[in-house]
Design a protein around this nucleic acid. Structure first.
Length: 577
DNA sequence: GCCGTTTTCGGCCCGACTGTTTTCAGTCG
């Protein structure tokens, strides 16, 4: 897995370097496409021969050769040569908003600028004056861009993005003349983070909407405004783009602005082959320019010979081919989730009591709900066997009371075990087998070497009492990277032993990430989408977990906590048998 | 560099906005 990501990063770097040095732009694009395909490929490229490499879409003889060279030697001569021509700092310059590869090269060749800091200094010394392509406005914009880059905390988490988007949409929807309004972009595709937000509105006259948008209380600055597109930045630094389209362009526009860019490129290629032209303004006959009526997204896809594709799948990861074959998965819906298998109470590090959490679970309409407080190895939680057994008694009482109501919520008593560096867990098997469900997770020693980390996970997966591996990569947004392990080996073991992998729904975790879900799914693994709630409001995080699961092509059948309780219980019992 | 029910050569998605280049290139999405 690491090799797929490494190779993808290397191909992307080469694509960037090619676009800076100029020459054939299509060549750079070919490397970009190959980078994406390798990054999302379901098999580990380090195990593939040249023929199998060339079977990856966008990988031909030349790129397959470079991948082989990298896997054999750890280097690629062509990339090394490009790195010698273009220092890494020049590539970093293109991260500055409004500065692309062409002008980054001018700065490097004419002024010797090869880092963001050097650019800031050069602007301060007015050395850009008279440089071709750089006028007085450029200095100002670049300085502003450098400030943003330095202040940038990267992408914003999905919960923040969704709250902002829903607020903006609600306010714009009330503007007179606004016929439709929604958010599109990566947020509609349910990515775990958002770079900027895309809001789409339909109106005959964009004026009132544009005025309302630039006057929103959240606006920090107006970046640009025109007849169809207006961009603002909030006081918190989040860019929001509003597009206003005529009502009869809604279907094509919503499709276009939902993306992804890669998905849309593929759709336009299909349109071109059908002698059509697709843009955000509609679908047209290429020759006559005559408009084809496409009122909805469904109409757009149908006219291209495809069924409607759910937004979380629109990443050019094979969804267009699957749609053409009529083999699109029916994505998991949040409402398919009948219960939660990983939650905490104030007995350990949760905020709310058992009773409050159970009440909230009932209000969510769940059929079953597992309480899985931490086990003793997380020392700060002060857990003991006695405390756990006392909780179990209370859970049994609540369950008995609930059971007397028809269709009442059923409770499971579980625990979240700690996977020690050697792969062992907190309690002996005799005690573990008395739990309904055991989640096991890594909470420390994140930097073990890859082979040790892999053995650690495998030991936990092979444990007959471990049902779910919690937040498998342990990544935390902006704080901690994923641990390094041989995921394919772990996923194969999960499939073999009937161990579920968690899709942890907390917005800062979203773990497994969608790329690894896709990969695990290929091994035939089952999943549990869990909130890992430490408070009542946390239970609602399930929507983000469902979104990531959709992006991983999971169906309800793949996710054990969509199953009826009896089927779930037999899955849990089968592990130890 | 990749790719093929029009093609093994000649294409490769499309449009808006900005600033500066007096007619368009660069950047972005």
């Amino acid at each position: 897995m690491a090799s797929n990501e490494e190779v993808a990063a290397l191909l992307q770097e080469y694509a960037d370097l090619l676009s800076i040095t100029g020459g054939d732009a299509f060549k750079a694009r070919a490397y970009e496409r190959a980078a994406r395909a390798v990054g999302g490929h379901s098999a580990d490229v380090s195990g593939l021969d040249a023929k199998a490499l060339k079977a990856i879409p966008g990988v031909g003889a030349s790129i397959a050769g470079k991948i082989g060279e990298y896997l054999r030697t750890g280097r690629v001569a062509a990339v090394d040569e490009a790195r010698e021509r273009i220092p890494a700092g020049v590539r970093e310059l293109t991260a500055i908003p409004a500065l692309g590869p062409k002008r980054a090269l001018v700065l490097y060749e004419e002024l010797g600028v090869s880092s963001v800091d050097e650019l800031a200094a050069a602007i301060g010394e007015h050395r850009l004056r008279g440089l071709k392509g750089f006028g007085p406005k450029s200095e100002e914009k670049l300085l502003h861009g450098i400030d943003l880059l330095r202040a940038a905390t990267g992408r914003i988490p999905v919960d923040t993005a969704l709250a902002l988007a829903e607020d903006v949409v609600a306010r714009l929807a009330e503007v007179p003349g606004c016929e439709r309004c929604t958010y599109a972009g990566s947020l509609r595709r349910r990515r775990g983070t958002a770079g900027d937000l895309d809001v789409l509105a339909a109106a005959a006259d964009s004026g009132p909407l544009t005025a309302a948008f630039t006057g929103l209380p959240v606006v920090g600055e107006v970046i640009g405004t025109g007849g169809t597109k207006t961009s603002i930045r909030t006081a918190d630094g989040v860019q929001v783009d509003l597009r206003v389209v005529p009502p009869d362009a809604w279907g094509a526009a919503l499709q276009y602005f939902t993306g992804s860019k890669e998905h849309n490129i593929r759709l336009r290629e299909i349109a071109v082959r059908k002698k059509l032209k697709l843009s955000e303004y509609g679908l047209f006959h290429a020759r006559s320019g005559r408009r084809i009526r496409v009122a909805t997204e469904e109409d757009v896809y149908a006219r291209l010979g495809l069924p409607w594709i759910p937004p979380p799948l629109r990443e050019d990861r094979g969804e267009i081919e699957a749609a053409a074959r009529g083999e699109l998965p029916e994505p998991l819906a949040e409402s398919d989730l009948r219960g939660d298998l990983h939650t905490h109470t104030d007995l350990t590090d949760g905020i709310d009591s058992l009773e409050a959490m159970v009440d909230a679970a009932r209000r969510r309409g769940y059929s079953y709900y597992a309480i899985t407080d931490h086990a003793p190895e997380l020392r700060m939680q002060r857990m003991t066997k006695e405390r756990m057994l006392a909780q179990r008694e209370r859970v049994a009482e609540l369950d008995a009371r609930s059971r007397r109501r028809s269709g009442g919520l059923r409770l499971l008593h579980g625990t979240e075990l700690n996977i020690a560096p050697d792969g062992s867990v907190d309690w002996p098997g005799e005690f573990l087998e008395t739990f309904d469900v055991c989640v096991a997770s890594v909470h420390s020693h994140f930097t073990q070497p890859r082979d040790e980390m892999t053995r650690r996970f495998l030991a936990a997966v092979e444990n007959p009492h471990v049902h779910v591996i919690g937040h498998p990569t342990t990544r935390k947004a902006g704080r901690r990277p994923a641990v390094d392990a041989d995921w394919d080996e772990i996923f194969a073991a999960c499939a073999r032993t009937g161990t579920a992998l968690e899709v942890n729904a907390h917005p800062n975790r979203l773990d497994l990430p969608d790329e690894l879900i896709l990969r695990a799914r290929g091994h035939g693994v089952k999943f549990a989408v869990d909130s890992d709630a430490h408070s009542v409001p946390d239970l609602a995080n399930m929507r983000y977990g469902a979104g990531i699961a959709q992006r991983g092509w999971l169906t309800a059948e793949d996710v054990v906590n969509t199953w009826p309780l009896a089927r779930l219980r037999s899955f849990l019992r089968a592990k130890a048998a």
